[in-house]
């Protein structure tokens, strides 16, 4: 099949990006970001806390971690619930042991179904980030802006009803957005999102309702990517995180604050044979003078004071 002449036309071939959401910017050439307490490496922990209906939805796509076998997929439905019933509490115990505050990116169905979880999370001082309604509420190009807004506002409403606080942060399922999603998020009052992985520090992201902040939640460093997708061990995961921390500490000496996000999943890292290695990892990271464990919300607030308007 031959190609239409338009295939060799490049209407957006120009200086800068091929969209208007943000400007190109090189990390090492920016003004330094200074984290609280002068720490070199800020470590936000984000836990994805998800509810998978046993009836999966494939439009616009089936979420990662969703049902696999023909109905009824007890295997995956219950394995995911294991993370919520057991694994999460191992993570929360670990965080408490080391005195670190995390951001729990929660499907609002979790808040509605399990108010005890909201209580455990908020009593421990963790932040709740909105993470859609349930794992059928995926967003991608082609989903109507009205449907996107419904997912976002329902998620925020339900989490607020259960927790008393309206989340300021958002994580899309699989970090997947449609072109309009940043506008929808800003319109709904979201201050920051965790979806775009194109950087290592928070930056301003343009929407129709003014700018919001994107805090890049590195997908390459997630437990899902390292352990589930590339089939590495929890020990390899820990080595990779510490190697990253070593490198970022070095850069911080000359370029200002760096960020090392840990993206954790209760049904992956909250297993008995993995949790001790995570516990030891967090202990070693927390023992470094250079690190600051902080919620995504608090890091966004710090960045918001420093980033040019």
């Amino acid at each position: 099949m031959t190609l239409d002449a338009s295939y060799l036309e490049y209407p957006k071939r120009r200086h800068g990006m091929d969209h208007d959401r943000y400007e190109w910017s090189a990390l090492p050439q920016r003004p330094a970001i200074n984290w609280p307490e002068g720490k070199a490496v800020a470590i936000p922990i984000v836990v994805s806390l998800e509810w998978f209906p046993i009836l999966p939805e494939d439009k616009p796509f089936r979420a990662p971690g969703h049902m696999v076998t023909p109905y009824p997929d007890y295997r995956h439905y219950t394995s995911r619930e294991y993370g919520t019933r057991v694994g999460l509490f191992r993570l929360l115990d670990t965080f408490a042991k080391h005195g670190v505050k995390a951001s729990i990116a929660m499907n609002s169905a979790i808040a509605t179904r399990y108010p005890e979880i909201v209580e455990s999370v908020t009593n421990a001082g963790h932040e709740i980030v909105a993470h859609a309604t349930d794992m059928n509420a995926t967003i991608a190009g082609g989903v109507s802006p009205e449907r996107q807004a419904e997912i976002v506002t329902t998620s925020l409403d339900e989490i607020e009803a259960a927790s008393g606080t309206r989340p300021k942060g958002w994580l899309s399922i699989a970090r997947s957005q449609a072109f309009e999603t940043p506008d929808v998020l800003a319109e709904a009052g979201i201050a920051y999102m965790l979806d775009w992985v194109n950087d290592e520090l928070p930056y301003r992201f343009a929407t129709k309702s003014g700018s919001i902040i994107n805090l890049p939640l590195n997908h390459e460093l997630s437990d899902r990517q390292i352990i589930t997708v590339t089939q590495q061990s929890i020990d390899s995961y820990a080595t990779q995180i510490e190697d990253a921390c070593d490198w970022l500490e070095g850069e911080a000496e000359t370029h200002g604050g760096r960020m090392l996000p840990l993206h954790l999943t209760p049904y992956i890292t909250g297993l008995p044979y993995r949790i001790d290695a995570l516990d030891a990892l967090i202990g070693r990271l927390a023992a470094r003078d250079t690190t600051l464990f902080a919620t995504t919300g608090s890091l966004v607030a710090s960045a918001d004071e420093q980033l040019p308007r």
């Binding site: 990006m17 082609g142 957005q177």
Partner: peptide, 29 residues
């Protein structure tokens, strides 16, 4: 292109595009 799909997801493939964009902002340097 009728012979090969570009992004795995409907556009915008936020993770696919963002990952590549990381190269010019962070990785290259």
């Amino acid at each position: 292109n009728p012979h090969r799909k570009s992004w795995a997801k409907p556009h915008p493939d936020v993770v696919g595009y963002g990952h590549r964009d990381y190269a010019n902002r962070v990785g290259h340097w």
